[in-house]
Design a protein around this nucleic acid. Structure first.
Lengths: 181, 181
DNA sequence: GTCTATAATTTGATAGAC
DNA sequence: GTCTATCAAATTATAGAC
């Protein structure tokens, strides 16, 4: 796998933001990890806000690809839910990081407007997919979509700070039970 | 109501942290709002980490008082759930801010250790209360407790960034329906 | 308890050479 | 595209006067 400098910057920056949020992003720290100087980052991203938006866009795009694959690989809503859950379990157990847009959403009051909007899109995309691919036709489809996403974001955040997978695991268990009782 | 300088500092700092997280806290900004100089804050809180811990402690203590009052005022689990839900609805619609410990939990990877622990306590306290006051005796009490807290924290975060109360409202609606079906 | 003054560091960003 | 050099501003924190 060959990465361009831009891709490396975004990758490193994403991991940093997923650990400490937007204000934890530092051009110098990113540059050091990429192997360039901080001034060079400005060639690719004029401002920090631009970099933030780029991270959010790539994160959302990657998520969308995975959602599309989930819908291809399974038609059963319960199978799709299982795949959707796996995305959040991976964040916790493999990446050992928050959901990028989860942490940015929490900080959204003080984010640059363009970044706020980019984070908002992530949630709209997810709610729309859950609504259409999991709960289509159900009487409270929209509420169910909110519920699944909210409980997974919240459980991820709890598992991070409580330093145990239990919250996310238990929430997933109840989601599997309750979604189509 | 008369406030000491320490109380004013904590109050202002809490609101700031609930908008942008730990790194958005600025001694100078806090000092200006309180009406003192930033150096004076160090008289009350030696380091920024100490201030962070103080905010989290007061936030958790206030929450605990409200939880105790909820348990006093009602014995019906469904009534207690209603009161519990109201705490998060108030954060969104009155304070128009995140839950302090929700936003700090998201950032927990890069927080000072003492603050990490303080935030962890908030979640332990809430899970314990939900477990005992709402789901006592139920087969999946612990999982239910995780579920209620996670979905409310997540819904709050979604409502903030999507700039609509819908996610929190819909999640609350489903919680009322599903908790004791 | 609060102040002034200042240290030491880090921040995002720019100018201009190569 | 990346570099060096630098700027202006912001950061937490400390020393010492009052």
């Amino acid at each position: 796998m060959v990465y361009s400098t831009v891709e490396k910057i975004i990758e490193v920056a994403e991991l940093q933001a997923r650990a400490g949020g937007y204000n934890a992003l530092s051009f110098r720290v990113i540059a050091k990890q990429v192997g360039i100087k901080s001034a060079s980052i400005h060639y690719h991203f004029a401002t920090k806000a631009d970099l933030g938006v780029a991270i959010a866009h790539r994160y959302t795009a990657r998520f969308e690809q995975q959602l599309a694959k989930l819908a291809e690989n399974s038609t059963q809503p319960s199978d799709r839910l299982e795949g959707y859950i796996a995305l959040f379990v991976q964040a916790l157990t493999v990446d050992k990081k928050m959901c990028l847009c989860g942490i940015l959403a929490a900080e959204s009051d003080l984010l640059p407007e363009a970044l706020q909007r980019a984070v908002q899109v992530f949630f709209e995309v997810n709610v729309a997919w859950l609504h259409g691919a999991l709960f289509a036709g159900q009487p409270q489809a929209k509420a169910q979509a909110f519920f699944v996403l909210a409980s997974l974001e919240g459980a991820l955040l709890m598992s991070k700070v409580m330093q145990t997978d239990a919250p996310l695991e238990q929430v997933c268990k109840l989601l599997r039970q309750d979604c189509w009782q």
